[in-house]
Amino acid sequence: MSTEPRTVSVNVLVTKSLEIDEPAWCIDPHSSAQFRPDIAHNGPEIAASFETRLGPVDYLRAWISHAPYAALQDEPLPIVAVEVDAEVVTLDPDSLRAFTATTRAHLDALDRLADELDHIRGGGQ
Rank of each mutant, 00 (worst) to 15 (best):
Q73H: 14
E45A: 08
R53T: 09
A101N: 07
E116M: 12
R104A: 12
L77I: 09
V89M: 12
L54P: 02
N42G: 03
P76K: 04
S65L: 11
P68R: 09
I46D: 14
K16D: 07
A71K: 15
A109V: 00
N42D: 00
T7V: 13
L107V: 14
M1Y: 00
M1R: 07
P76M: 05
R61A: 13
D94N: 07
A62Q: 09
L107E: 12
D21W: 15
A71T: 12
R36T: 08
T100P: 09
A105L: 15
Y59V: 07
E83Q: 08
V8Q: 15
D108W: 02
P44A: 15
A24T: 03
W63D: 11
Q125N: 07
L77M: 14
I20R: 05
D111K: 12
T90V: 10
P56S: 13
G122R: 08
R61E: 07
D118W: 07
S32G: 11
D58M: 05
G122Q: 10
V57S: 10
H41D: 07
T7A: 14
L96A: 13
E22K: 14
L117D: 09
T15N: 08
E19F: 05
W25R: 11
V88Q: 15
H66I: 01
A114F: 04
F99A: 04
D58I: 00
H119C: 05
G123Q: 03
R61S: 14
R112I: 03
W63K: 14
A40V: 06
I120F: 11
G124N: 02
A71R: 15
S49M: 09
D28R: 00
V8E: 15
G55H: 03
A98I: 03
T103C: 09
R36D: 03
A47Y: 04
L60D: 07
A67P: 04
A81I: 02
E75C: 12
A33R: 01
A105F: 12
L60W: 08
H119D: 11
L96S: 05
V12P: 02
S9P: 06
S31D: 13
P76C: 04
L110Q: 08
P23T: 03
P68C: 08
A70V: 00
P68E: 10
T3M: 10
G124V: 03
A33E: 01
D74G: 15
A67K: 13
E75N: 13
R112T: 10
K16C: 10
S9V: 03
N11G: 01
S49A: 13
A40Y: 00
N42I: 03
F99Q: 02
V57C: 14
P78A: 12
A70S: 02
P44F: 13
D118K: 11
T52W: 00
L107P: 07
L96C: 08
R36W: 02
A101G: 12
I79W: 08
D115F: 00
L110M: 07
D92F: 01
A48D: 12
P29Y: 05
R6P: 02
S2E: 11
E83N: 06
D118C: 09
D74W: 04
S2G: 13
